[in-house]
Design a protein around this nucleic acid. Sequence first.
DNA 1: ACCTTATGGCTAATATAATAATCAATCTTA
DNA 2: TAAGATTGATTATTATATTAGCCATAAGGT
Lengths: 110, 110
Amino acid sequence: MAKARRYSGYSEEAVILLGKQIKLGRKQRQWSEVECAERAGISRATLQKIEKGNLSCAIGLVFEVAFLTGVPLFQSEPVSMGGKLDRVEDKIRLLPDRIRKRHKEVGDDF
Amino acid sequence: MAKARRYSGYSEEAVILLGKQIKLGRKQRQWSEVECAERAGISRATLQKIEKGNLSCAIGLVFEVAFLTGVPLFQSEPVSMGGKLDRVEDKIRLLPDRIRKRHKEVGDDF
DNA sequence: ACCTTATGGCTAATATAATAATCAATCTTA
DNA sequence: TAAGATTGATTATTATATTAGCCATAAGGT
């Protein structure tokens, strides 16, 4: 392992929140990791890092997935990040842990 | 050169806007590129890419600089990105193109 | 006008992100 | 309960981000 670089808690929280919101948006769209990664043109491994809040992912890839999953970027109020994080986690908990591809098309493309 | 990957205009605009806001914040603090890069613990070359809106910079580095320069992350309304961009550019134009380090301390640290 | 310094651009190195592939565990549907 | 699919995690390989250093240009202070 190499020397891990230091980040502020602010950056860490922001990226983690973003990743959680992406995960939530993906699940709300009922996209599996594979399907979401294909739509974004990235690998499943990278999508997993993004949803986990990995700080070294390319910002373009992260924003691209955020866009596809309907996560709005930027936040006028830099406060209350913790509260938002809790609410997102709550919503994730209400959805199934795994998502299966629907056999009959329901027209969720576009 | 390798095959450049495709990004949505949304992602491109978002990263560019973020970079411009960072540049504005840096100038408002009267930090040169070198000083800002040192504070963030990154190279000047990377800071330049960030301020230019390079999509392949690590999101953690971008957020770190955004934090240091006082740029709020996330935006509740995904609209009006173009208007925001114009306003930021206007503000940049009002400031000097180059910033020289003050010889006498004026206590802007912290 | 001069002198110092910030900025923009480029290069080569090296550090590391992104990928594809695989495996085990577990959840959902039938 | 069985079958099939999703998720989580790890690996080796390839692609590329990050860095340090340099140069030329131009801007600001004196």
